[in-house]
Design a protein around this nucleic acid. Structure first.
Lengths: 211, 211
DNA sequence: TTCAACACGTGAACC
DNA sequence: TGGTTCACGTGTTGA
């Protein structure tokens, strides 16, 4: 049972309990009702968040919010890796080669190589030729197109013929060659307003993460 | 300035204001402090959610939670589509067409179409021709190869020219035509309405993980 | 008993 | 001025 402390306060401050008191109590009533609506709104959203979080137990409000935070972060990273990292071609030419694992088989390496550039008819055959000339094995190839741009991602394993130590650099060099060919053949056509980034080569060594 | 209403209540209930009153006021103090800690915890999580939401304005608590809810739903669908995007071609020929949403634009549909078959040189141009002949728009295309087999996944939106109701069936028919061309070139008869399952037994996949 | 979590009403601040 | 949002202290309930 809620206590109306305005009685005591009115008495202390000498206020009259009359018409002005009725106005005050009406204002307080609408105020408390508005506050109750606000609480209900927030709690309703909290409840729908409870439905979205993959947990079966009833959780504390704070722990529920913490769970939501961690899930949002997780989803953001996976969505980012999926959309930007792997599938969707960006509008800057790019070559990336990274080593994923070094214990696939007997000293063979697992590489992830990607090239992103403008599409041209000879691109796919050039890619195939370049990969065939390398001492690598294509485990998986993925080609994505978006608006005339192409992003190609390869999962490669070294065949162990050559030196595995420079496998990353040799693959990167081969892909950069293809990028150069693209740039040379596309020199006459520059539809963009600003000078395009021709070649951005990045190399991530993931071997430091795992022993 | 907070009002300590225990004075009036103690007077009404006839309680003594003395040692027991001191204990009561101490209990109330610890209680309010605990409640304050709880509020701080919740608000801290709310603040970190504010940092995660892609909005620059300061938002209401309720609208912030609503924004978080919509973002979680959005991220869930994109993450799911991304994980679906990593598709490895299987050893069986297959055509799949499904409707993802029906409220993309003004009555246009979002379709996901995929075809999985053996690679042949004319496959890509055939695919392009078939898609171009359909009243659809290619939002995203993804081609994956594994050991000579190809899986191609399209994200399509209907242009609204034809009847959206049979968009799924027309796309499926076009893709099945391509599948039949593959089969025809392989000198093999095929059933009429269902995508044929054709086991690929010609050679062992050299890109298996063991080596 | 104490503790943790919740809803409630209220004062204050800001349009 | 009302209207709205927030923080606070408190009553209550269940472990």
């Amino acid at each position: 049972m809620p206590v109306n402390q305005s009685f005591a306060l009115d008495g202390e401050k000498g206020k009259k309990i009359g018409v002005s008191g009725a106005k005050t109590v009406a204002a307080l009533k609408s105020h408390s009702e508005a506050e109750r609506r606000r609480r209900d709104r927030i709690n309703a959203h909290l409840e729908s968040l409870r439905g979205l979080v993959p947990s079966k137990e009833k959780m504390d409000k704070a722990t529920l919010l913490a769970e939501v935070i961690s899930q949002v972060k997780q989803l953001k990273t996976t969505a980012k890796q999926a959309s930007e990292g792997l599938h969707v071609p960006m509008d800057t030419d790019d070559v990336e080669v990274e080593m994923l694992e070094n214990n696939v088989g007997h000293g063979s390496l697992l590489l992830r190589a990607s090239i992103c550039c403008e599409y041209r008819p000879e691109l796919l055959s050039d890619l195939r030729q370049a990969i065939d000339d390398l001492p690598v094995h294509v485990m998986k190839c993925e080609i994505s197109t978006l608006g005339g741009r192409v992003k190609s991602v390869f999962l490669l394993t070294t065949t162990g013929e050559g030196n595995n130590g420079n496998a990353v650099s040799s693959v990167r060099a081969a892909l950069c060659n293809i990028l150069e060919k693209v740039s040379a053949s596309a020199d006459y056509a520059q539809p963009l307003f600003f000078p395009r980034k021709r070649q951005r080569v990045s190399y991530v060594d993931s071997s430091c993460l795992s022993s």
